[in-house]
Amino acid sequence: MKIDEKTVPVLRCTGCGTPAIPPRYVCGACGGIGFAQDNLGAQATIYSYTVTRVAPEAFRADVPYTVLLVDLAPGLRVTARLASDKEGEGLSIGQSLTFERVDGRGVYWFRAA
């Protein structure tokens, strides 16, 4: 299994070690309320995707843009954006992705591997 060089920033429950996408206030697995910053060496794959063509004002300049639902680890997904967008061309469910960055607004970006 290929592990990407870049790793995905996550929160990790200090009680049971379960990873979570921020923000997270209570651990879904153990109910703990303590979290530490961590990184996940994730094998990211596409769970689902869509090309958005009608968007609210704040995202109008981005249209069309691809929103991804990404599998990171068993039980851990994140809703994300596709970098270097070609209107979702050539994407398919199950396809591998490379983690790109988390931007200033906390949005996760991936690109096709």
Partner: peptide, 14 residues
Amino acid sequence: TGLTFPGFFALVAK
């Protein structure tokens, strides 16, 4: 992320 309500249900649909 710019996910809209149609976008949400589009992910479900796909």
